[in-house]
Amino acid sequence: MTVDGTRPIVEIQNLHKSFGDNHVLRGIDFTVNQREVVCVIGPSGSGKSTLLRCVNLLEQPSDGKVFVRGEDITDPDCFLDDARRHIGMVFQQFNLFPHLSVLTNCTVAQTTVLKRKQSEAVAVARANLERVGLHEKIDAYPAQLSGGQQQRVAIARALSMDPALMLFDEPTSALDPELVGEVLTVMRKLAEDGMTMLVVTHEMAFAREVADRVVFMDAGVIVEQGSPHDVIGAPQHDRTRTFLKRVLDPTHVPPTS
């Protein structure tokens, strides 16, 4: 329970994850509350994507617990597919289904998983495609769209399941620079509409303007977290300062070995 009485949507306790000898996450504790937008930043290899993938169990944690909407999804007897319906996920590489049209990408899980009627699923998909500004592309195939459009379809696909939480795994990292804006705009609108979001990103401007909380990770632990004003504006730790300097002022980074 948080101070204002709402339950956290995501609660992570002492999370560890190793790939062989590679200890990627070394004891993570943190929560995401309802309607909160949390941005996770940090150098590559810091474990932020792995952390995100542990929230819908695309990665099986080595140790620790993950609660989503109060349910322990690390419990081996958890109905994982049921839990995942409520967790939308947006990938760096979009991962749209290339053999299905834009509309079907957004309806296939609705009709099969949620057992919605075709007409209802289409209506929901249309509404969400409209939300991301792509209602004119419903009959197109993913290969016919730009990267930015594909990522917006991916967002509409996830939204069509009416998730309680959206996970974004570096959603703009695979995009050409001029296409980043359209995706970030959609995400900002989503945040303003009150969606709970956990975003792994390198877009500092987005984190600064949209996030309620910024989490800085390095070497598998959370180094510091707080409001974007504090973490990005006045970082307390050396590692945070070094990272931010590299990201925000990349032309003045001293060469390292």
Binding site: N95, V108, A109, V113, M161
Partner: peptide, 17 residues
Amino acid sequence: PKGQIEAARSLGMPFGL
């Protein structure tokens, strides 16, 4: 690509589906 099954599972689809 592995991302395809990951995307499908993330939407709550069971493995067989």
